[in-house]
Amino acid sequence: MNELLDVKELCVEYRTSRATIRAVKDVSFSLAKGSTLGLVGESGSGKSTLGHAIVRLVSPPGVIVRGRVSFDGIDLLSIDEDGMRKIRGKRIAMVFQDPMSSLSPVKKVGQHFVEYIREHEPSTSEAEALQRAKATFEDLGIDRSRVDDYPHQFSGGMRQRVMIGLAIALQPELIIADEPTTALDVVVEAQILELLKDLKRKYSLSMILITHNMGVVAETTDRIAVMYAGKLMEVAGTRKLFADPKNPYTRALLQSIPNILLDDQELRSIPGSPPDLANPPTGCPFHPRCPHVFDRCRVEEPKLKKVDGETETACHLFG
């Protein structure tokens, strides 16, 4: 396997005077070159923190406590900030949920591209950078002339296209997209997901797609990592995860989601709610809600391990 990214036992904590919240707990996974990994979880599961930690963008009071993030053989957690800047944006780019807060309202959209490109490649001239912006606009399905427009002249979906354009402008190898379609209506969401798939093919990108939407990961990813309370509960190939989920949390989640293609579907709701991370349960974080809970689950935290082919799961039911 040709791994582009390898994360080992990564731990991130938010430390305040009142409590220490373990937002990412001993997370290990890898991403093969050219593939898309879906990182799914509910709000507060730590999926977004994990995405940010990979490029060392955890903001205080968040701290990367330990672990290893190896990208194309480079240990990202040990290089200096200068070295990191050469990778962030240039080789690993991020796309966030809210495009408006990332674009300056007083700058033409093309100017955002020019500044971004020249920041990372100072030798590129303004004219050249603007040409590249226009070429990127074609990839995005936006008229080239609109580089002269301001962000407010774009609709929500167009702005998200622009953000994706900025992310690919420096031809990165990996894109981390954090809920890129959550704020969008369903038709625009479908357009953006199609765009991401097209760009991925065209430029052989690898991608981590962070989302709470099981439908989105089903349609766009090769593998899925399921997160709950800071912990990876299950990692498996996308088809395998849906066909044969091992972890009780994954199983419960899949049974609780309405599917538009099914008639007279019976939903099974999961009792209780996700844990408060300032005061997490002992043992397995899902044990208070788990239908298969037994004594060991209350005291010992299960570790992620291979249970069936490529499927890894963290559950005491599997030894």
Partner: peptide, 18 residues
Amino acid sequence: LLAAVPVPDPTVRREKKI
């Protein structure tokens, strides 16, 4: 709208006319 809704089933392949 129906075509655009993401379906939580990776075995489903639909032609999406968005």
